[in-house]
């Protein structure tokens, strides 16, 4: 448990949020793509330890960007 906490808190690791099915469809519609075209994240990724995910879920990543402050990035969970 202790270690999981540190992983989420490290400066290199941005916040990972699992999107609901509705939010997922909204994102896919916005970019006019299918979920296969999204960048991927493996289901055993250490950053996902705290969240329950299944294959096909879309994870929103809130990055701190040097150019626009905060940016949102999406990755789809794949089998690692």
């Amino acid at each position: 448990m202790e270690e999981k906490q540190t992983i989420i808190k490290h400066v290199l690791v941005p916040q990972h949020v699992k999107l609901s099915e509705e939010q997922k469809q909204e994102v896919l519609k916005k970019y006019n793509i299918s979920s296969k075209q999204l960048p991927r994240i493996k289901n055993d990724d250490p950053a996902l330890k705290m969240i329950e995910v299944k294959i096909g879920d879309v994870i929103m990543i809130k990055r701190k960007s040097p150019t626009i402050g905060e940016s949102e990035y999406y990755r789809v969970v794949v089998n690692g």
């Binding site: 400066v11 690791v13 493996k42 250490p46």
Partner: peptide
């Protein structure tokens, strides 16, 4: 612990995940 830095990218990826490695 929050500011530990290493220049070994694969180690970062293994412990902090792909987004950590990207950063």
């Amino acid at each position: 612990k929050e500011t530990i830095m290493t220049n070994d990218i694969f180690e970062v990826s293994k412990i902090f995940g792909i987004e950590g490695a990207r950063e």
